[in-house]
Nucleic acid binder design. Structure first.
Lengths: 149, 149
DNA sequence: ATGATATGGTTGCAAATGTAACCATCTATT
DNA sequence: AATAGATGGTTACATTTGCAACCATATCAT
C-alpha cells in the first residue's frame, strides 16, 4: 500500500483545476456582456440547444442541483427569456421553453461560445478537442456503471 | 454566421458537467469519513503532495480563489494538520506545512483517492486516463497562451 | 530616502449554494 | 378505492462563496 500517490495524475483533481480555469475564462466573456450567472447560462444553453425540457432534465443534462436549476429558471423567466407550459400528462412537470427573445439571447451567447471554442481550437491544434471530449464521454459512461456498483 | 452551435461539443460545458459528476462522486467518499470539505481536501492534497507551499501557490496549483484557500488553510490549522512558518525573506508570505498528523490524514485520503482512481481505471480500460490527462494538459497550456492574447 | 504601486493574506458583507422540509401530483400495493 | 411511497418542483434556513476593502510588507521610480 506504499504505492506513491501522484496528485498530478489524479483525475478529479485535474478535472477540477482545468474546469475551474476554463469556466472562469469563458464566464468573463458573458458575465459583463449579458449580466448572466453561470447557472443561468447553462440552463439557457441547454434549453436553446436541446429544445423544450423539464427542470429535472436540465439538471441531468448539466449536472446542476435541482435548486440551482429552479433558481436559474426563475431568473430566465423574469427576463422573459423563458415560459412555462403545463404538462397535461403529468401535472407536476412543467415544460420549459425559450421565448423568441430567449432564443435571441441564446444565439448571441452561442456566438460568444463558438468564438471562444474556435480560439481554443486554434491554440490546441487539429482534433485535440474531439479527443478530449471522447475521453470525457468515456468517463461519463464509466460513472454511470460505477453508480450501480 | 449561421453555423450550428452544438452544446454537446462545447468544451467548458462538457468539462463542467463531467467534473461536477466526478467531483461529487469522489467527495462522497471523504466527506462522511473525514468531515472534510472540497477546498480542505484540495489544500491538504496539494500540501501533502508538493510539500511546503505558500497560500498563493496552493491557489495557483488548484485553481482556487484566494479567500477559499485562506479559509481552508485556517480549517486545517485548527485541526492541527498544518502549521504556518514565517518566511524571513518576505514577511508577507507564510510557509505552510503539514504536521505529522496532517500527513497521516493525507495518506489516508490518498488511499481513498488511489482506490477511486483504480476503480475508474478498471472501468475505463488501459491508457484512457493518461490520454484524458494529456488532453487536459494541452488545454492548460493553451489557456496560459490565451491570457496574453 | 520617499512616495506610488504591487503583492500576500485576511475579513466584512452581500450573494450564491445545498440541505431538509415541504406541497402537489403520480404510481404501486393492497 | 385507499393508503404508502416516489417524483417534480419550490422555499426557509444555514453554510459557503466571492467581491471589495483592508493591513502589512515589498518593490519600483524618482
Amino acid at each position: 500500500m506504499a504505492e506513491p500517490f501522484d496528485l498530478e495524475s489524479f483525475l478529479p483533481y485535474r478535472l477540477n483545476r482545468v474546469t475551474e480555469a476554463v469556466s472562469q475564462s469563458f464566464a468573463r466573456e458573458y458575465r459583463q456582456r449579458f449580466q448572466m450567472t453561470r447557472p443561468e447560462w447553462r440552463a439557457l444553453a441547454a434549453l436553446g440547444s436541446v429544445g423544450c425540457m423539464a427542470a429535472t432534465e436540465i439538471g441531468a443534462h448539466s449536472s446542476m442541483h435541482k435548486t440551482k436549476v429552479s433558481r436559474a429558471v426563475r431568473a430566465l423567466e423574469v427576463r422573459r427569456w423563458l415560459k412555462r407550459r403545463p404538462n397535461e400528462a403529468d401535472r407536476r412537470v412543467e415544460h420549459l421553453e425559450l421565448t423568441p427573445q430567449g432564443y435571441k439571447a441564446y444565439r448571441e451567447v452561442a456566438d460568444l461560445a463558438r468564438a471562444y471554442q474556435a480560439n481554443l481550437d486554434r491554440l490546441l491544434g487539429a482534433g485535440a478537442i474531439e479527443r478530449i471530449e471522447a475521453g470525457l464521454s468515456e468517463v461519463e459512461r464509466a460513472l454511470v456503471n460505477r453508480q450501480q456498483a
